[in-house]
Amino acid sequence: MSTVYIGSFTSWGPPVGPGFQAGTVDSASGKLTITGGVPGIVDPSWFTYSRDGRILYSTIESDPGKVTAFNVTDPQKPRVLNSAPVKGAAPTHISLHGRYLLAANYSSGSVSVLSLQGDGRVGPVVDVAQHVGNGRDPHAHQVVTDPSGKWIVAVDLGADSVYVYSLDSGKLKQNQQLKLPDGLGPRHLAFHPNGRYAYILGELRSEVTVAAWDPAAGRFTAGQVISTLGDANPPENFPAEIQISPDGRFVYASNRGHESIATFAVGEQGKRLSFMSTTPSGGSWPRHFTLGPTGRWVYVSNQRAGTINWLPRDPATGKLGTSAGSVAVNNVGIVSFK
């Protein structure tokens, strides 16, 4: 059995159950079973873990925004350690970088750097980088460390940009602003395991941009652009999540509106993507998905349907099958393996 943690939006409708829940997954059948929850957690929308796996950090997507730390030493009995403000609004994504926790604040269009205490508790904000929109308000949606471990990369939907920062003594310094086409709305990116390419998902244009990455210079160069829909033409579509298989052979992206997961084959050592297919997500508005530890199941958070669905995956071909089961989670936003 594997442990999963589930976050859902408690303020986006009548609350039904805890916003933060724990569960288990059977690797053979794919079945996800919810085992309990922590009451009083509001809008936990993204998780990341300490290197030793003892601490789970969660965004609290509120205004003002916060980050909450949970002790998950006993995986099925998480307990709150503390919460700390991010000095921004509606944090949608967090990640770790050494002794710091990084937060992408959607509503305020900023990236915050928070200190971490020795016991894993979240400390105060030590720096905030403010973005500027591109005809729209800035909306920072993701912040990660590049595979070299040297650079901080932030994706901003409202600025139509990917920012590259250095981080020294807790202070961010901009190294590059990769400006993408107006109205693309970049939301998330995923790096290829070889560390030489990244795949940038555009929420407003249903496109993936392949970008070459130079870790020595800390710079992206935009390349191929490919649709997440193939030949489909739904009335509306807003891609949300992008991930790459651990072997670097397949990229997946969720389509909210078309209600599907797109599959791409990776070619030329990461330089090019080829569209393979879309597979129904099993519900409505697939906000997030994640590959299970064995690579044989994909877990999709269908937010509007209020379900987590598990889809079978063939690791050899990368192909997904139709939903094999589901569990009800109201306004689900994320499912994450410990």
Results as ranks from 00 to 15, higher is better:
residue 2 S to A: 07
residue 69 A to R: 09
residue 220 F to Q: 07
residue 175 N to T: 05
residue 188 H to I: 02
residue 294 T to P: 09
residue 195 G to T: 04
residue 248 G to C: 04
residue 162 V to S: 00
residue 236 E to G: 01
residue 148 S to Q: 06
residue 182 D to Q: 15
residue 300 V to M: 09
residue 61 E to T: 06
residue 268 E to V: 03
residue 46 W to R: 01
residue 97 H to T: 01
residue 239 P to M: 11
residue 303 Q to C: 13
residue 8 S to N: 12
residue 272 R to A: 14
residue 78 P to F: 04
residue 300 V to F: 09
residue 152 I to S: 02
residue 205 R to V: 13
residue 273 L to D: 08
residue 91 P to T: 05
residue 291 L to F: 07
residue 185 G to C: 15
residue 240 A to T: 06
residue 274 S to Q: 13
residue 139 H to Q: 14
residue 203 E to Q: 15
residue 323 S to L: 14
residue 88 G to M: 13
residue 27 S to A: 08
residue 249 R to N: 11
residue 128 V to H: 00
residue 151 W to I: 00
residue 276 M to H: 08
residue 271 K to S: 14
residue 297 W to H: 04
residue 46 W to N: 03
residue 9 F to Q: 11
residue 80 V to W: 04
residue 188 H to R: 10
residue 289 F to V: 00
residue 288 H to R: 07
residue 303 Q to A: 14
residue 327 V to A: 06
residue 58 S to M: 10
residue 123 G to L: 11
residue 193 P to G: 07
residue 238 F to Y: 15
residue 8 S to F: 10
residue 241 E to G: 00
residue 127 D to S: 03
residue 223 G to Y: 09
residue 45 S to T: 15
residue 137 D to K: 07
residue 160 D to V: 06
residue 240 A to S: 15
residue 203 E to V: 08
residue 242 I to S: 07
residue 260 S to N: 05
residue 155 V to D: 00
residue 142 Q to E: 13
residue 307 T to D: 09
residue 329 V to A: 07
residue 308 I to Y: 08
residue 141 H to T: 08
residue 338 K to V: 05
residue 26 D to Y: 08
residue 34 I to N: 02
residue 29 S to I: 15
residue 135 G to S: 11
residue 110 S to G: 09
residue 99 R to K: 11
residue 110 S to Q: 12
residue 224 Q to R: 08
residue 229 L to H: 05
residue 115 S to E: 08
residue 108 S to Q: 11
residue 169 S to P: 06
residue 210 V to D: 00
residue 171 K to C: 04
residue 173 K to M: 05
residue 149 G to Y: 11
residue 266 V to E: 08
residue 254 S to Y: 09
residue 38 V to N: 05
residue 102 L to Y: 04
residue 301 S to T: 10
residue 57 Y to S: 00
residue 182 D to C: 04
residue 171 K to G: 04
residue 26 D to R: 13
residue 299 Y to E: 10
residue 51 R to D: 12
residue 285 W to N: 12
residue 183 G to Y: 14
residue 72 V to I: 15
residue 46 W to K: 00
residue 280 P to S: 05
residue 324 A to T: 02
residue 260 S to F: 11
residue 48 T to Q: 00
residue 8 S to D: 05
residue 287 R to P: 13
residue 16 V to I: 14
residue 184 L to E: 13
residue 254 S to L: 10
residue 185 G to E: 15
residue 276 M to S: 14
residue 77 K to N: 07
residue 102 L to G: 00
residue 217 A to Q: 13
residue 61 E to W: 15
residue 156 D to A: 10
residue 272 R to E: 12
residue 137 D to E: 13
residue 189 L to S: 00
residue 61 E to H: 08
residue 152 I to T: 04
residue 71 N to G: 09
